[in-house]
Computed example of a mutant assay.
Amino acid sequence: MNRSAMSLAALVALGLSGFGAFSSLAPAAAGTAAIVAAATERTETFAIENMTCALCPITVKTAMEYVDGVKSVKVNFDAKTATVVYDPSIATVEAIARASTNAGYPATPAGQGS
C-alpha cells in the first residue's frame, strides 16, 4: 500500500472511531427530547354521554384522535369517560370535547386535567 492510501485508511479509521464516541450521545439526546415532550403534554379526562354499545367507544376515540395535537385516547365504556393525552400548544380541551360532541357523544371535561 502506498503512503497516501495508508494515510487515507488511517483517517477513515480515526473518523469512524470518533463517530462512535458521538453516537453514544444520541440516546441521551433522545431521552432529553422525550422528557421535554412529556413535560409539554397534558392529560384530561372527559365525561362522555350517549355511549350505549360496544361501538360507541371506538367512535369517541376516533373522533378525539382526529384533533391535531392529541397523542392518545383511552375510553372507559363502563365509567363513560375518555382520558386524553394532548399537546396544549396544538390542541385545546374545547376542541377535543367538540370533536366527540360533533360525533354524537357530548363530552365535558371532568376537571381532572394535569
Results as ranks from 00 to 15, higher is better:
64 M>P: 01
76 N>I: 03
67 V>N: 04
60 V>Q: 06
56 C>A: 09
87 D>E: 15
79 A>R: 09
73 V>P: 01
69 G>Y: 09
77 F>G: 04
57 P>R: 07
60 V>K: 05
63 A>R: 08
76 N>W: 01
64 M>Q: 11
73 V>N: 01
77 F>N: 03
69 G>K: 10
76 N>V: 04
82 A>Y: 04
86 Y>R: 01
82 A>P: 07
68 D>V: 08
55 L>W: 15
60 V>Y: 04
77 F>L: 14
71 K>W: 06
72 S>I: 02
86 Y>M: 02
75 V>Y: 05
74 K>N: 14
59 T>M: 10
65 E>L: 15
65 E>M: 15
70 V>P: 00
86 Y>C: 00
63 A>F: 12
87 D>S: 14
67 V>C: 05
83 T>L: 10
58 I>D: 06
57 P>L: 10
69 G>H: 13
85 V>H: 02
71 K>Y: 09
84 V>G: 01
71 K>Q: 13
83 T>G: 10
65 E>R: 12
76 N>F: 02
65 E>Y: 07
55 L>V: 12
57 P>S: 13
55 L>Y: 14
56 C>T: 08
73 V>I: 02
66 Y>S: 15
57 P>F: 07
83 T>C: 11
77 F>W: 05
64 M>R: 03
66 Y>I: 08
58 I>N: 06
87 D>P: 08
73 V>D: 00
64 M>A: 07
73 V>L: 01
66 Y>L: 12
69 G>N: 13
71 K>D: 14
55 L>H: 14
